[in-house]
Nucleic acid binder design. Structure first.
Length: 278
DNA sequence: CACGAACCCTGGCTGC
DNA sequence: TGCAGCCAGGGTTCGT
């Protein structure tokens, strides 16, 4: 569920709860999620101070004061909750897998019903060589990302544009929602061959990606099922979807009879306007 | 190599 | 009402 805007929303929400705080205790209520938790997870986290919270693509990164970084991925259904007063947090439910208590008296809770999420530790200074991040594409909101950069990444790709944009090696952080929304804004068909996007089309697509992500972050992300901000309030970008999950509804920009079309690509739904997007 | 399908897992919704 | 089937924001692995 969480794509870049949702993960960034979580990062910002966790910042006051974790940055500069010392971890008093961490409780992992099972041995693994998608991957096993680190060996001796609880003892290795005890008394560590969180120096900074970062995000890379859909990964959340907490730099610790022992030169290690806690890497978190929310998978499809992962969610973080922050309680200022740990004693006022509700008792953990069946899918509340990890609790992090800080010296400041707060509690951060990781809930993930589907357990596609992940928590692990890796040395901070070599994160770039970590398998998760080797070959990961540019951050779409960084200065390194623009039309020419995107065109270079799409060059030679014989796959549909939709599939290429879902590939984290092309652009970091895009997922099923924002790919559909960005393609709509750029008026490009999800079925178009990825390698056919260069020049002005690549400029338009890079702009659309940056725009839609920035607007979604501003809105606190999209709440479909699980995503919520760390204080429990909801993101509201779902109200601004032009095409995602709007099959058959009118295209917001043209009056074609078909409305929004849903197709399946690589096993996942794509939504677009067949008239506007070419 | 590069693609798509299958799989990991639970919950919520639809339709019978 | 109950239940089978399908679908879901992600990523990895396997087969073609």
């Amino acid at each position: 569920m969480p794509e870049l805007p949702e993960v960034e929303t979580v990062r910002r929400g966790l910042s006051p709860a974790l940055e500069g705080r010392t971890i008093l205790r961490i409780v992992a209520r099972r041995a693994d999620l998608r991957a096993p938790f680190p060996e001796n997870f609880e003892s290795r986290m005890r008394n560590r101070r969180v120096e900074a919270l970062h995000r890379r693509g859909k990964y959340l990164l907490a730099d610790l004061d022992d030169a290690m970084t806690l890497i978190v991925h929310l998978g499809m259904s992962g969610r973080m909750m922050a309680f200022e007063d740990a004693s006022r947090a509700p008792p953990p439910g069946p899918h509340d897998h990890v609790d992090i208590a800080t010296e400041a008296g707060g509690l951060v809770r990781f809930r993930d019903p589907r357990r596609f999420g992940l928590m692990t530790l890796a040395p901070t200074d070599s994160l770039g060589e970590h398998p998760f991040f080797v070959g990961m594409g540019p951050e779409p909101l960084s200065n390194a990302f623009d039309g020419p950069a995107l065109a270079a990444l799409l060059k030679g790709r014989k796959t549909p544009l939709k599939a290429a944009l879902l590939d984290q090696g092309v652009v970091a952080g895009l997922g099923n929602i924002y790919v559909s929304e960005a393609l709509f804004r750029a008026r490009l068909s999800p079925r178009r061959l990825a390698s056919s996007v260069g020049g002005r089309r690549a400029d338009a697509l890079a702009d659309a990606i940056r725009q839609v992500l920035a607007e979604a972050i501003e809105a606190g992300g999209s709440t479909l099922r699980d995503h919520a901000k760390t204080d429990g309030s909801l993101g509201y970008f779902q109200h601004r979807f032009a095409v995602y999950d709007r099959e058959g509804r009118p295209c917001p920009e043209c009056d074609c009879a078909n409305g929004v079309t849903r197709i399946v690509q690589a096993g996942r739904s794509t939504f677009f306007c067949a008239r506007k997007q070419r």
